[in-house]
Design a protein around this nucleic acid. Structure first.
Lengths: 340, 340
DNA sequence: AGCAAATATGTAAGCGCTTGCATTTATGAT
DNA sequence: ATCATAAATGCAAGCGCTTACATATTTGCT
């Protein structure tokens, strides 16, 4: 029976309540504009019919969706989870809904998803990092969709960013490593192409080396994708070199965990035989043993501030401005002074 | 300048290409219906104008969105990440887009998000577990949105499910624990209200106890929310009891990791002093030391099959049928025979 | 060359909602 | 009571697209 009855529309409600569709619409959107008696009648009709507004129609008519889209590189690990959760909580508080897509670190998939989200009427977009084709920025500009970047802070870019200075953050950590006497360094980085964060973190290590007068060839750089297994695999190759590095700085905690596990597999003690550091300070960093010395990122604060800034851009059609958050090195057990 | 030009519409493209809007629409949706010469002209117009179809309008006209919505309890930990990623990969392969929301384990938030997704024209919905208000099922029925449940397998429920038998799975693990001589058991469960998986897992432990002739009061049940800290906190209370349990079966790996860490904090050796088990077999389970004995869930298979089944339901407007996946206990280091 | 059948394109009617403007009804000061 | 003013409601024009159905063009036969 219910099979042949289709979802009620505004019109059905209007008929049932004996008013015009305009009045029903007002009851739902600007209730103070309709007198109490009418409103009650309408709402009870809404109720008894089980009416829910059709979103597509509403977006089309109102040209506003109260939806914000976010595209993150991955959902598979926790790197973006905490920040995104905070982002969602904040926008929800302000009456917006979040739509999330994951690009699996594939630029084409990301472009696709940006278009999908925009076509869907997203009022604003949250993107991770600045690296992407100019074409996409043109598109965003033409469509006039307020867009904000997070997990990076590069105030000179055309799109405002709420995040931290990846280069400076990694430099601080590298300084600490070098300060402990390490001179043969290696880094296991994410793929730096199309990933400003990965690239800048490597740069940060170089900065610290230069500052301490270490030659640049004291650093071995390996790039791989962000999974535990990859961290392990690359670490193994690294340690087979002669001489092996005494400290391995990983592009994130996930890679670092892979490295730690591989070290154990190889019978190497961390940190006595080799120091390993992470980046991000996700939960994993405290769970692995030895616990990781890593760079703490204020994920929740970043998520919250990004939400506020983006909504502000949407509401005021203003340009938006970048916000820098600070990171700090958290010292745990995976980093020790060099013994060679 | 671009500020005053707004996004091009189908009509603009039609004018530019010198054809009707119908033809443009066909070029985009059923290109084989339009002759090559025309098609080229149209596509180049699309291109030079940078046209992107307006999704809301398209959904409204076509009554089809090629979008599938998924609502998961949390993005904060990895429990649903892997399965969801597989789900997304599969539906993407079939031309659908995934929209994800997280309910933060709050039923009202979930209801809200279901309505949002439906109103947005989702062609189908993926939900986790069966427990929710009847009103929601009525709504889904009335809106005729194909819906599938995952992470649970309860074929008698009105909504089909693709998942595993939580009760049976936990029973298998509990059998193993009891087989090792443990009689004083405790479980750290998620909040079971509104969570059939949590409830059934507890039930599974009871089943095993009954089968082995253990009295039901040999089990202490504590419920808390799914976070590492909570696992730790509850575990502490549990071990303060006199006598303490010799084995603690946790509702998931996250809680188990919290328990392991707390044990170490308290100077207890795992598994010599107390055994701890998890559930789900997420990455964490292998990273913590001792590695967790836990129940392995075929996350990726579940995600993929759920996607296939749901799309099948959508394409054929059929009822859909439930699929049971099997789990297995993976034996690692956190469970040992009882020494009392 | 001529005609029926097949193929390509155009016309226009919605899809369900919001909102500017016009109209009706209530309010309150005289 | 009366009338200007304010408050509540209705009317109807879109929003940008898809898709029957109608019309025009091409194709393949004889």
């Amino acid at each position: 029976m219910s099979k042949y009855r289709s979802a009620p529309t505004l019109d059905d409600v209007a008929k049932a309540a004996g008013v015009s569709t305009a009045t029903v619409s007002r009851c739902l959107n600007t209730p103070q504009q309709v007198v109490e008696a009418t409103r009650e009648r309408v709402l009870s009709a809404v109720d008894s019919l089980g009416y829910t507004p059709n979103f597509a129609a509403r977006v089309m008519a109102a040209k506003r969706s109260f939806t914000i889209g976010a595209i993150i590189p991955t959902m598979e690990n926790a790197i973006f989870a905490r920040g995104l959760q905070a982002f969602q909580e904040e926008i929800r508080k302000q009456g917006f809904t979040l739509l999330v897509s994951s690009s699996a670190y594939q630029p084409e998939a990301e472009e696709d998803q940006i278009r999908t989200l925009v076509a869907r009427g997203a009022d604003g977009l949250l993107l991770i990092g600045h690296d992407r084709e100019a074409r996409i920025y043109d598109y965003l500009d033409r469509q006039k969709v307020p867009t904000l970047v997070a997990w990076s802070y590069l105030p000179d870019k055309p799109i405002p960013s709420v995040g931290f200075d990846n280069r400076k953050a990694m430099k601080a950590l590298a300084n600490q490593v070098i300060g402990l006497g390490h001179t043969r360094l290696a880094t296991i980085s994410g793929i730096s192409k199309g990933n400003d964060r990965a690239r800048l973190r490597i740069q940060g290590i170089r900065d610290a080396m230069t500052e301490h007068g270490l030659p640049q060839d004291g650093l071995t750089v390996s790039e791989t994708s962000y999974e535990i297994e990859n961290g392990a695999e690359v670490f193994e190759n690294l340690m087979l070199r002669d001489p092996p590095p005494t400290a391995v700085l990983c592009g994130n905690d996930v890679l670092a965990v892979g490295a730690v596990r591989q070290a154990q597999q190889m019978g190497l003690r961390v940190p006595e035989d080799v120091s390993i550091t992470g980046f991000d300070d996700i939960e994993l960093a405290r769970i692995v043993s030895p616990a990781l010395t890593t760079v703490h990122v204020p994920h929740r604060e970043m998520g919250r501030k990004a939400a506020q800034e983006l909504i502000h851009m949407i509401e005021t059609s203003s340009e938006g401005h970048s916000i820098e958050l600070s990171t700090n090195v958290v010292t745990r057990d995976s980093l020790l002074e060099s013994n060679r």
